[in-house]
C-alpha cells in the first residue's frame, strides 16, 4: 500500500506540472496583458518598456521558466486590477466559496442518504419510482437556471430570502464566515440549495444502486434470518457497506461543486473565488486567472490523493494488492 501511495504522490506532482504548462500555454496565446498595464494613449516606447518589465520580450521558454520558478517560490504575481498579490485575493474569497460548497454537500447528504436507502430497499414501490424520476429531473436541469427560478420565487415574489450578496460575517480562525448569524445564514440558503440539487440527485441514485447491490449479499440474508429489526439491517449492515464506494465519488464531486459554484456565485453575486474568476476573465486580470486555475487544480489533486489514502485505509482488500 505504501508503494501505491508513493506512486500516487509522484503522479500528483506530475499532474500539477502538466497543469502549470497548460495554464502557461493558455495564457500566452490569449491576449496581451501589456494593454492592461499601460494607459490608452501610451507611446510605442512606453509599450515596449511595459513589455520588458513583464518579461514578454523574452522567448516563451524563458518566460515559462520564470513562471515556474516564481510559482515554486510562492510568487503568483499581482492582480492588475486590485494591485495586491493574486494568491491573497483568492485566499480572502475562499471561505465564502467553501461555506456554500460545504453547506450544499451537507444538505445533499442529509437528504440523499435516507431517500436513497428507501429507494434501494423498496425499488418497486411507487414512492421509489417517483424519487428516481425526481433524481433524473435533478440531473437534467441546468443548475444555474434553477437558482434563477429560486431567486424569482423566494426573493422577488415571496421576499423570504435575500436575492444576492453575502450577509454579515464574523472572524473565526482567521476566516470570514457568515453562517453564524441568522442574517448571514439567510443569505446562504438559496445559493447552497441551488448548488446542492445536482449533487443530491446523483448521490441519491448512487446510494440506491449501491443499496440494491448490498442487500443481495448473504450477510444481509443472514441478518434478516437472525431476526434483526428491518431498520437495523438497512442502516447498520446495508448503508454502512453501501457508503464505501461513495468515498471515491466524493473527490470528483467536490471538484464539480467548486466548478458549479462559479455559476451559482455569479447568479447570487456571492463574493467567492468563482465570482472572482468570472470577473477576472471579463477584466483580463491574468494573474488572478492563473492562480485560480492552479489553486483549483491543486485542491482537486490533493483531495483525490486523500480520497485514495482514505479508501486504502477503509477497504482492506486494497492493502493486499
Amino acid at each position: 500500500m505504501f508503494g501505491h501511495l508513493i506512486k500516487r504522490f509522484i503522479q500528483m506532482i506530475f499532474v500539477l506540472w502538466i497543469v502549470s504548462v497548460l495554464v502557461f500555454v493558455m495564457m500566452s496565446f490569449t491576449g496581451d496583458p501589456t494593454f492592461m498595464m499601460v494607459p490608452l494613449d501610451a507611446t510605442d516606447e512606453q509599450i515596449e518598456q511595459a513589455r520588458r518589465i513583464l518579461g514578454l520580450d523574452q522567448s516563451h521558454l524563458v518566460q515559462y521558466w520564470r513562471f515556474l520558478t516564481n510559482l515554486l517560490q510562492g510568487d503568483f504575481g499581482r492582480s492588475f486590477v486590485f494591485r495586491q498579490p493574486a494568491l491573497q485575493l483568492i485566499m480572502e474569497r475562499l471561505p465564502a466559496t467553501l461555506e456554500i460548497v460545504f453547506l450544499a454537500m451537507i444538505m445533499a447528504l442529509v437528504v440523499a442518504i435516507p431517500l436513497g436507502v428507501y429507494a434501494g430497499a423498496y425499488p418497486q414501490r411507487a414512492g421509489s419510482r417517483a424519487l428516481m424520476a425526481g433524481s433524473l429531473i435533478g440531473i437534467s436541469l441546468p443548475g444555474f437556471w434553477l437558482g434563477m427560478v429560486l431567486i424569482f420565487i423566494f426573493a422577488v415574489k415571496l421576499q423570504m430570502f435575500p436575492s444576492s450578496g453575502r450577509g454579515p460575517t464574523e472572524m473565526i480562525w482567521g476566516m470570514r464566515l457568515s453562517f453564524l448569524s441568522w442574517e448571514g445564514f439567510r443569505h446562504l440558503i438559496l445559493p447552497a440549495v441551488t448548488l446542492s440539487v445536482g449533487t443530491l440527485a446523483i448521490l441519491m441514485s448512487i446510494i440506491r444502486a449501491e443499496m440494491m447491490e448490498v442487500l443481495r449479499q448473504d450477510y444481509i440474508k443472514f441478518a434478516r434470518a437472525k431476526g434483526a429489526a428491518n431498520r437495523f439491517v438497512l442502516f447498520k449492515h446495508g448503508l454502512k457497506n453501501a457508503l464505501i464506494p461513495l468515498i471515491t465519488v466524493f473527490g470528483l464531486m467536490l471538484g464539480d461543486l467548486i466548478a458549479f459554484a462559479t455559476l451559482t456565485e455569479t447568479i447570487f453575486a456571492w463574493p467567492g473565488i468563482g465570482k472572482l474568476l468570472v470577473d477576472s476573465i471579463y477584466r483580463g486580470d491574468r494573474p488572478v486567472i492563473v492562480v485560480y486555475l492552479m489553486f483549483v487544480a491543486f485542491l482537486f489533486v490533493v483531495v483525490n490523493f486523500l480520497v485514495d489514502v482514505a479508501y486504502a485505509l477503509i477497504d482492506p482488500r486494497i492493502k493486499v494488492s
Binding site: 503522479q11 499532474v15 466548478a259 486555475l293
Partner: peptide, 11 residues
Amino acid sequence: ADIQLSFPSVL
C-alpha cells in the same frame, strides 16, 4: 486519461 479525469470539468 487518468490525468484528464483529475481536472474539474469547468477548466
